[in-house]
Design a protein around this nucleic acid. Structure first.
Lengths: 195, 195, 195, 195
DNA sequence: CATGAATGAGCCTTCATTCAT
DNA sequence: AATGAATGAAGGCTCATTCAT
């Protein structure tokens, strides 16, 4: 990658981060291009040099977050931990990540309304990939005798719900910092799959 | 209440229902007055005969849902059931209700952005009232030896998260009807507080 | 005129009065049918039983005011007064009338924008008739040696301007009642034509 | 001021002029943003790049006119003329200015209905400042033995009324150009204060 | 006669997008 | 690469008007 390309890539990434932060707070329709630009001390027009449009920008921000999340899990999977601790770590990371990046997992109540067919396919695929990371962890936990779950996909969805919802009430109870908070929450979530 | 007043009240309620349904799907900014009107085969303008504006309409729809939800819980509390079964029933009702009314519990990612100070106060008060219904159930369950929870408000928030998220993935796995689905899900959610 | 007709006529007149009062304050576009109706404790719809529409209502209110004004002058002309005192009395009446009825002489900055060709013709005709009342008074005053004016129509327009503008500043200085106020003002206006 | 700033200022001024011209003809409620835009061969939306909204635009146009008017008087005051001629010149300028810029002195029958408290304060302050210019001229004229007036503020209001009303009837009698017209009118107005 | 209700046209305003510089 | 400026398509809201009851 040439210097210029790297510079461009970096700028793109900055815009994506800014977009994510604003989108998490205001939602798709509530966020204007100007919001995103102002957040970066840029002008509206400049963004169009890097992205085709609002929809494209939001799409790529979703991809970024999903990829990052998947990678987060993969990293933990590599570690030398009991399956019990692996899931726990994954959950903590997820929560820390969503609180820190205001990840906007909640963002897309109905992505179908916003994205094109093609984009939707990609997003759903990544979402499923992320979900299946959890499924395999749960499965492994069952085999290891740690977890007890009849219907893995249901249990996993409950798990994700409890995790994603956290962004809704964190600030309210917010005396703890993000890390301490995640730690105080994870045990209750783990109960969903524990024997 | 006179005949006319009842007619007006009925119409208002129809509009609120329509609004809720559309809002749950598209969110506040994504929903247009026309969306809501079309859903009822009315014209935009007519809605303004019944509500002062979009914000007013959405506010009242939130109030309606919160009051209904609180009443749902109160009804169950009256019943002659073990505390264990009471919480279970409450959760099932909540899920059935949110799926059926597309309740839009998810609606307000950031209500502060939309409502006036005064409205916000009212909404927060009702949310807390609803939350405290769960708290008292959990507390009672602890005393009865059914549940084991250190921090009740955290446990309750996890519980609500798992429940509210359900609207996000129900349709995806949707081979079961709402009732059967709620039943298949509740046991995993109950684990969050169970001993 | 039958009883019913008289009742209708009375109602019409009430509406016209209400309309005038609101129109004087808010202007044509700033006044809504509802404003006028509320002022009379009626409903919007009822007005349409008596008038074809907003434009018709406003037109008739203008006619009413112009006719009344012309009649006011004619009455004074009949009286046994010096020409000097006649004009003075006419001016005082005009001012009292415009303050009392909020006559809305100022209403029509550009009547051509609002009325139909036909209506406009009628209004202009009455305006001219009213103006010519003043012209004849001035002329008479000149012949009697009281007034000194080269160009009567210009002098009369200046006169009318000074008089009509009074509604703009009356309330501001308003320690006097309408009558006392008119009296305190008329001498300055008379100077415009006096020798 | 940079080149760009000057360009923006110029555009703003063009819009203000356009606004004034339309507002004078149709009044606040009768004037649409589109009217103002079309007058300049712009589109509605563009105006919002320069002004916050209709109300802001109208407010600034009022400020502009009032400031210009005050400056007009100040300039004349500096001149080496008898007090008699000063007032005459001021009146002529006022009339020429209102006819030329369609100044819309008539615009605000009830400014309180349109502007915010803060804006209203500013406008009233400038109006009073303008009025007091006339008061001091009249006072000076009295002392110099040219004028004879008991109540200065009443005389001044009559004066302003006669002057402002001119925009209502100029076009009707319009065989003279603006300058000649103002000259033909000023003597009658001067009579209001003359000895 | 009066009114509650509905309608649709029109207006203010926002915002994604484009483009000349 | 960036920006100031312009545009046009919505969307929220108002209001004159109509009409069934």
């Amino acid at each position: 990658m040439s210097l210029m390309e790297r510079k461009t890539a970096k700028k793109k990434d900055e815009i994506l981060k800014s977009a994510l932060s604003v989108l998490a707070e205001k939602g798709y329709h509530g966020t204007t291009m100007e919001d995103i630009a102002n957040h970066l001390l840029m002008t509206k027009g400049s963004i169009y040099y890097y992205f085709k449009g609002k929809q494209d920008l939001v799409f790529q921000s979703q991809i970024k977050i999903l990829n990052q999340s998947i990678q987060n899990v993969e990293e933990v999977k590599e570690k030398d931990l009991t399956i019990d601790e692996k899931l726990k770590t994954v959950i903590i990371r997820h929560i820390e990540y969503s609180l820190h990046e205001k990840s906007g997992f909640l963002l897309m109540v109905n992505p179908a309304e916003i994205f094109s067919e093609e984009q939707l396919t990609k997003i759903i695929q990544l979402r499923e990939q992320y979900a299946s990371c959890y499924d395999s962890l749960i499965e492994e936990g069952i085999e290891a005798g740690y977890f007890a779950v009849d219907n893995i996909s249901i249990a996993r969805n409950i798990l994700l719900g409890a995790m994603n919802w956290v962004t809704q009430w964190y600030s309210a109870d917010g005396e703890l910092d993000e890390q301490a908070f995640a730690a105080s929450v994870v045990d209750y979530i783990m109960r969903i799959v524990k024997k």
